[in-house]
Amino acid sequence: MLNIKNLKVSVENKLILNDLNLKINPGEVHAIMGPNGSGKSTLANVLSGKKGYEIQGEILFDELNINDISVEERAQKGIFLAFQYPVEIPGVNTNVFLRTSLNSIRKSKGEKELDTLTFLKLIKEKAKELGIDEKFLSRQLNVGFSGGEKKKNEILQMKLLQPKLSILDETDSGLDIDALKIVADGVNSYKKKDNAFLIITHYQRLLDYIKPDFIHVLSKGKIVKTGSAELALELEKSGYKNL
């Protein structure tokens, strides 16, 4: 599904990702761990198409080179990024945003756009699954939401938009244990044989709830070690220093 080949990314001539290779197949859950400044969030932003990076190498998504494809087209093709810090947008109603988003994606696939009533029925169902109070949906997007509520809102969007590849950028940061469980349950319930996850995290904590198939350690812009779920426990004990 995702095949990253020899990816080099720099910002203002500073090399951040250096010759990164990563392959993710449908149905797999990959976790990327690594110390601060290792390039984890840059990888997430580059995959979603954020501007401002100089990029060499290839990013193939479903066999298609997406290097020059815009942010919204990548989203329409099925790449989803759950933000570490979801943006607060005053004046934009959460429901209106969610419907605009879903309909943009449906439209790009040639599917019929959902009318307000059908949409509301759908979103209420999804919100209920995640234990999100309906009232949140009529509030301004992320404005005044707690850290946990913002992250739950990200997972709600993921479940609504049904992406092929979900990238979770430190979704566990700032979550208490209850919110963490809800987020993890959201991810686990969306796990299917034809979609995949890339979970970026600092700590092994989230991986107690979401079991990855592979763990990669990112250091100085490179994957320096790949292993199974047990690698997380090892790292928790010995830290990143030995790598």
């Binding site: 942010v71 919204e72 945003f97």
Partner: peptide, 13 residues
Amino acid sequence: NSIYYLMTRGISE
């Protein structure tokens, strides 16, 4: 950043 956030949700610029 707000534009970027909305675009990652499939919404055009």
